[in-house]
Structures are given as structure tokens and as C-alpha cells.
Design a protein around this nucleic acid. Structure first.
Lengths: 210, 210, 210, 210
DNA sequence: AATGAATGAGGCTTCATTCAT
DNA sequence: GATGAATGAAGCCTCATTCAT
């Protein structure tokens, strides 16, 4: 009859989440090395020692943080995979929409930034991100691009060979937002729309011929 | 012409450069916060105190380092600007060649990485990079893209509005090399060649019609 | 006689004893300062807070532990006192037997070790040990040695003046067991037998003369 | 021509020694675990960080401290070894004199105390002490005791088999000084004199017979 | 009474910066 | 100028103690 999670367990989970949320903010702001756990604790509203109830050390907190942020993005992306014969244009629409609504201006943007800035020094995180996000995203693009190419929708196979080309402007957008946006704001939506046009107009070429 | 640079002054300049070279390696390896001036001094073959003869503090060393790395890239890039009516394809060829030979596998790659990873926390550097590299590079692309569009070589003005689209894969290549290349190597030359095809095929479309 | 000890009270007593037993092991293993109450609680099978129901703080637990370990040894030793005109040899036999069976390889050995290693920083414990064990043991030896001397059984009064000489090898045995036994095992029984021979042969001298 | 030790080197050595001296006092007072390097630094008159110029960490400081204290004692003891056919009585006189003048009331007493109290948790130190002090001291006693036994000077071979019997009262004296002397002072000189009488009187027995 | 999550003071250690030589 | 030993502020982490449940 009893809910399987007691109040105490719930509180613990909430507390853990509060720490993760605070940690994301602090790590994103200062980077791993310069971030202070004091600040994380204060922002999370807990004592310093409390962090160590859930995490072995600073590095563990950082890794758990990034790992815990992978799952949600994934789920969304895999929804896109469902449709079998997706047109490239629809796929790009879906991906960019996902990026706009689920990443831009959200904590997930910070997660990506941290993978970019700290991934080199955290191989485990790089590996997880590659396995769970990069390779799956690439696979979807590759599959759709190949189908489009087969159907004559795409004149060539560049996107099938380098799915990274699809994601490159999103990566740039994240970095720009972090480094240059205060100097020269970037219209990310415009950028992605233009990118989509560039990529799909390629497709239109041959089809316009026929 | 002047003989005013004594041997002693030359030695001082060399020493300063040795420190800058060492600093780039160390900062690139560990990031600003985690880098240790001990390591910089050792790699430069000088005593720790010597660093402070040329640089006010760690932050100053970091900024001088990135600033000193801007000029050379710039010079090269401005050579491209010389030619008045460059075709887009030739521009891309030039830019990618510049990237391949002058950036990939060189210390400049590390400079770009540092701007990406640390730029947020060093607004002065972000501003300098934006002013000296980003805005000038964008301007070149913009100009050539507009001319190509006017000539009907490009069907639309996306690249003129978002020159960043040209650079995005290079940014991605730098990050990939730092984070994921040990997991899945990236054929950067192939990537850039594919990127060029995508961008220029767009141009071909309408011109093939006419 | 009284039925006043309820099951609950019994359980509390048992719990307290479990904590004391666990504490002895942990303190003996790590020393007072390095011992962790977490470990004590775990070994005792209670929660950490439970310790504080019986003991004011870590120091109190430590003192109670050593105090509670004094009584039993005492009782045994006082049994030896009973016999009025004990020969020195018989006394030594008794003492060494007591040491062999009641101390060696038992938790009491650890108690002695703790008095040796921590006594300096716990004057109250030193005082209790001195009053309850040292002075009483010395008194017994002194009395018997004096009687033996008076009877001409002992040629001199060294043992009466320095009863510590009787106990020194036992102290050494405890320390050796803690520090050097893994490097060079010590045959404690042999040591004590040899010690007894040394001490009593002294006694034989004059008696062999007469 | 120049002295091989520069002033700077001398200062460094002196500073290192000051740290070692301070460390001995602090470690002896508080024990390894409870000792604070802040206190060591303050007593040595240096900053906290200075300790780490000479020692890797707290443990290293502790080990170096005890190791550095071995050599001098050793040298003295080996002087005793020189004489080939030492009588037992003369050996004991020598050893006890050495103890009285070189150990009692000196920092070396604290070193021995630390070996006794911390040796269990520092196997390396236990091993070094055993190899450099214990085994050599035992060897000397063993050799002299055997010769004395062979000459009929000693009626039995207990001391040859258990040289520890010779040292036991010294060990006891060190511990007593640390734990009980404030409660009941111990006349260490008297104790050792009595001990010598006990040990040598044993010898007299048979020789008085012959 | 018993629990164990939460607390936060305190210690070890690192490292940017200084300064006497 | 050049050095590198010395400094001490600051951060991570532990653990005795408390307290809400």
C-alpha cells in the first residue's frame, strides 16, 4: 500500500537534484577547475558536506552531472528515429526545432558547453557523450541522408559521409552564445533556417532538373 | 636599421617567446585554471620568477599569449582579401587551405581551442578575437557571397547573412579533435571538402539552369 | 533478585556493550585520533547517533571503554593477593600465567596497548590505571619480595624497591606484538619463562649458600 | 676553493632541521594523527607551505623524522661492539650509561616513544628501527651473553636467547615517563641499577660456587 | 529510544605571487 | 636581470556532533 518512496527518500532525491542543478550553474559559469564546491553548496542551499553524501568528490559530481543530462535529450531524439522514411527536410526541421526548444536557452545548452570545454580532460564523459548522443544523432542523419540520396532527393552523399555537417552550426551557436554574443548577438534561429536552406537546396537541385 | 637591439635585449625577447610557447602548450593541455606556472617555467627553461618580469600575472600571461597569436593568422587571411572579384569557390578553397596548413596540427589550433573554452571568462580576449579574426573573416565571406549572389552565382544570400555557416565545420573540427578524436577520428579534409561541395553546389543550381 | 531490569533495559545494556567492544577494536587498530565513530557504529551494528545515547562524546567513549576494562583484570589479580606467604616463584608463575591466559591474544592486550599509546593524552585514564592496576600489582610484588628477602629467599631487595622489573618484559611483549611481531615474531612464553628464571635464580643464590 | 655548501644551501639545511625538530616536539606531544602541521610550522618559525619544500606530505615528514633520528644512536651503540671480550657487567654498564645520557630527557626518548606508539601504523618505520636498532642491539647482547656463558660467567643462556630481557626496563622507563611519571615518578637510574644487579647476580651465583 | 542525513569546523595540500640573493 | 625558496590564501574533503523523523 505504501508508496515505495518514503518522504525521506524523496527529500534525498530532491536534494541531490538541487545539488546537480546548482553544480551545473557553477561549473558552467566557472569551468570545472575554477568552480568552488562552496558555491555549489550555497546555491543548492545545503552545507558543504552534504555534497559528499551523494558524490564521491568534485570530479564525481561533475561526471554525474553530465551523465544525468544525457538521458532526456536522447529520448527526444530517438522519437525522431521512429519515422522510417523521413525526408531530409523534415528531419532537419525536427532536429533544429529540438535544438531551439530543448537546448537553446536551457540548462542543456550549458551541458553541451561543458562537454565542449572540459571533454578533453574527462575522457569518460567524452565517451559517454559520443556513444549516447553523437553516434546516435549521426546515425539518424546518415540513414535519412542515404535514403534521400537513393530517392534522388539528395544529389550527393556528403551528409551521409559527414553527418557532422548538419550539427556544426549548432555547435557554433552554442560556442558563440558563450563567447561572442555579448559582443555581437547571433540570430540562432536565422542561422539554422539559413543552414537548412543551404542543405536542402542542394537536394532541390537535381529534383528541379528532373 | 638600428643596431639598438643589444644581445641582451635579444635574449630577453627570446626568453619571452619561450615563455609564451611553453604557456600555450600548458594552457592548452590543462586549461587556464588548472595550468600551473611551475610547469610553464619548466617547459620554457626559466625560473618561475622570470615569468613575472614579462607578465603581470597569470591572467596577463594568458591574454598576451592569445593576443600574440592573433596577428600572424590575420596577415594570411588579409592576403585573401586582396583579390577583388573572388569566386566563392576560390574563397572557400583558400580558407580551407589556410585552415588545413596553418591551423590543423599547429599551435594555432590550440589557440582557437583556448578562445573557445576560455573566451567566456576572458571578455577582453573574446573582444580581440572577434575584432581581429571573426569580424574580418566574416567580412570577407560576406563580401564575396554578396558579389556571387549579385552575379547569380549564388541563388540566395544565406552566406552573406550568416558567414558563420562557412566557418562552423572548422570550429567543429577543432572541438572534435580535442574531445572525440581518440574515440572516433575525424577526416577533417574530407569534412571540409564535403562542406565546400555543399556550399558551392547550392551556387551551381541556378547557374546550371541559366 | 530484582525483576527491575526489563527486556528493554537488557537490550540497552547489550547495545552499550556492543559499542564498547567495537570501540576497543577500532581504537586499538587506528588509535584514538584516527579512529572513526562511523566505523565503531558499523562494527557495533548500531547507528552513529546511538553512540551518543550512552556516551557524551568520542573522548568519553574512549575513557569508559578503558575504565570498563579495568575491573575484570583486577579481580583476577586480587585473587593472588589472598595467599599470605606466597613464594616469589609461585607469584611469578601466577602472574605470568594470568598474563598468558587473560591478556595475551585477548582484547585486554589491546587495552594495555591503548593505555601505553594514549595514556599521555588521557591523564584520567593513566590515573585510573595506575590506581587500579599498577599500584596494586606493584604492591603484591613488593610484599612478596620483601617477605622473600626477609626469609633469605632473595639475596637483595631490588624487586621490593622496583616491582616494575617484574612487569617490564610483559610490557615489552605487548609492544613487540604490536610493532615488531610481523618482522620478527617473539616467543612470549619463552621470554617470560626465561625472565622468571633470571629473577628466581637470583633468589636461589643465597639459599644455595646456606 | 669554495666551500661546497653555499650559504643558501646551509640555510636550507638549517631550515629543514628546524622543521624536523619542531615536528618531533609536536608529534611527540600529540601523536601523528592529532598533530597539526600548522603547529609544526609555527614552532619551526616557517610558513606552512615551507614544510612541503622538504617533505612530500605529513606522513613523509613523520617518517623522515624518525629515520633521521636513527643514525646517531646507532653510531654510539656500535662503539660498544668494538671491544671483543666484554664482560656482561661492563656491557650493561655501557648500555645503561648510553641510555641515561643519550636518551633519557633528550629528544631521542621521544623518538622511541613514537616508535612504540605509532610503529604499528608505520610498518616502514618499524622495519627500519628493527633493522638498525633492535637487531643490532640484540646481537651485541647475544654475543656477550654467549661468551659470558661459555666462560662460566653466566650460569645460563637466557639472555642469549632473549636479549630483549636486557632492554625491557628501558622500554618500561620510556613508557612510564610518558604515562605515569606525573602520578608516581620513577627513579630510572635506580631501576636500571637494580636491573643490572639482578642480571649480573645471576652470573655471580655459579662463579661463587666454583 | 534509535536512526542516519545533515552540518560545518578544521586540517592537509596546492600554487600564484613575492623578494632576498 | 634572473633565480627559486618562501609565503599564505584558498579549496577540497573528513568526520565529530546534532536533530528531525
Amino acid at each position: 500500500m505504501s508508496k515505495s518512496t518514503s518522504k525521506r527518500q524523496e527529500a534525498a532525491v530532491q536534494r541531490r537534484q538541487a545539488i546537480l542543478d546548482a553544480a551545473l550553474e557553477i561549473f558552467a559559469e566557472d569551468g570545472f577547475a575554477a568552480a568552488r564546491l562552496d558555491d555549489v553548496a550555497e546555491k543548492a542551499g545545503v552545507a558543504k558536506g552534504t555534497i559528499y553524501l551523494s558524490f564521491k568528490d568534485k570530479e564525481d559530481l561533475f561526471e554525474q552531472l553530465l551523465i544525468s543530462a544525457v538521458a532526456p535529450v536522447l529520448d527526444r531524439m530517438e522519437a525522431l528515429t521512429g519515422e522510417p522514411e523521413l525526408s531530409l527536410d523534415r528531419l532537419l526541421q525536427g532536429l533544429f526545432e529540438l535544438f531551439r526548444t530543448q537546448v537553446l536557452g536551457t540548462p542543456r545548452q550549458e551541458v553541451i558547453r561543458l562537454v565542449i570545454t572540459e571533454g578533453r580532460r574527462f575522457p569518460r564523459i567524452a565517451r559517454i557523450y559520443h556513444r549516447e548522443v553523437i553516434s546516435k544523432g549521426s546515425e539518424i542523419v546518415r540513414r535519412v541522408a542515404q535514403a534521400a540520396h537513393r530517392r534522388g532527393e539528395l544529389s550527393s552523399d556528403e551528409l551521409a559521409r559527414f553527418p557532422q555537417l548538419v550539427f556544426a552550426p549548432m555547435v557554433l551557436a552554442v560556442i558563440w552564445g558563450s563567447v561572442f554574443s555579448r559582443i555581437e548577438p547571433l540570430d540562432v534561429e536565422g542561422l539554422l533556417a539559413a543552414h537548412r536552406q543551404v542543405l536542402t537546396r542542394t537536394a532541390t537541385k537535381r529534383s528541379s532538373r528532373s
